[in-house]
Design a protein around this nucleic acid. Structure first.
Lengths: 150, 150
DNA sequence: TGTGTTAGTCCGGAATCTGGACTCACTGTA
DNA sequence: TACAGTGAGTCCAGATTCCGGACTAACACA
């Protein structure tokens, strides 16, 4: 009888972070996407450069294709061979990858420095920063508050 | 004998994305961090709002404290009670969370719209965008290329 | 014929995740 | 004094996932 009242705030939050992680949060998924960003869309190459078990990589690629993040394309007819490409949804994961990379560069790189440096087309070393699209100010914790929450 | 030559490019890439995911990529880790961002630093509340098993949440919190992302603080003496706070490294995960959220808002929200809307202090709805710190231009795939890679 | 390449599959053991019951030390209420 | 919470966990056994390595199929090249 009181279940409804008791369970107020007792159920998990509906949340875009949680939903996104359900799709790309499994082990190796984002590293597969990273490889495609770096231009390696072939199965064997992805296995080699990520270190994932072939089995797991195969499962991830199936899932990423299924959710519309990657696209599987045939690049050779006669030995039938396939590789993977980013869809628009996949390309939109770029910011996720870059922010993860930035955090790692800052906290885990050690004396050797960042393992991979990107150069922006403006000629400078790419250091990606999150800004508010409206005012252009960098987004800092505590300067944004929830308005509506379901 | 040829092992060294054969293994050229055969080993996993050194990569800040991979390193970061080793720390925050386990299931529930980023959702625990999300809760702290939203102001819920207590164990029971985190379990309720994320849906994680208590056991797993306990393990994640231990790990996040261990890697310096969260800090465990006593907030009550007599029934000894603890809650969790972000360290600087933890606060620096804000961009990661926001980009994941943005992707979910765009691709997984459906007709109901974003489950959580944030308002930036400038008064506008927060829509966070990644820009190049040097030139201020939005970062788009294909406009950055690797310079150095170990 | 024999070696190499590439995109996978198959397998059994190991590691992780899961829900649910339980604990311990209180507090606040009847 | 008894008795129902509250809050931060722990314990457990079963389910799920991950793991490395061997294997396959269909070619190309020498």
């Amino acid at each position: 009888m009181l279940a409804a009242m008791v369970s107020v705030s007792a159920r998990p939050r509906e949340c875009s972070v949680a939903r996104t992680l359900e799709i790309v949060g499994e082990k190796w998924a984002l590293l597969a996407v990273r490889e495609v960003f770096l231009g390696n869309g072939r199965f064997d190459e992805m296995v080699r450069r990520t270190g994932a078990p072939r089995d797991t990589m195969a499962a991830r690629l199936r899932a990423l294709v299924g959710t519309g993040i990657l696209e599987r394309r045939q690049y050779s007819e006669h030995p039938a061979r396939f590789d993977y490409h980013l869809t628009e949804a996949g390309r939109d994961l770029y910011p996720v990858i870059l922010t993860l990379m930035r955090w790692g560069d800052k906290y885990l790189a050690g004396h050797a420095g960042a393992p991979l440096v990107l150069e922006h087309r403006c000629g400078h070393r790419l250091s990606a920063e999150l800004v508010c699209q409206a005012c252009g100010e960098p987004v800092v914790v505590g300067q944004a508050r929830p308005v509506r929450s379901r």
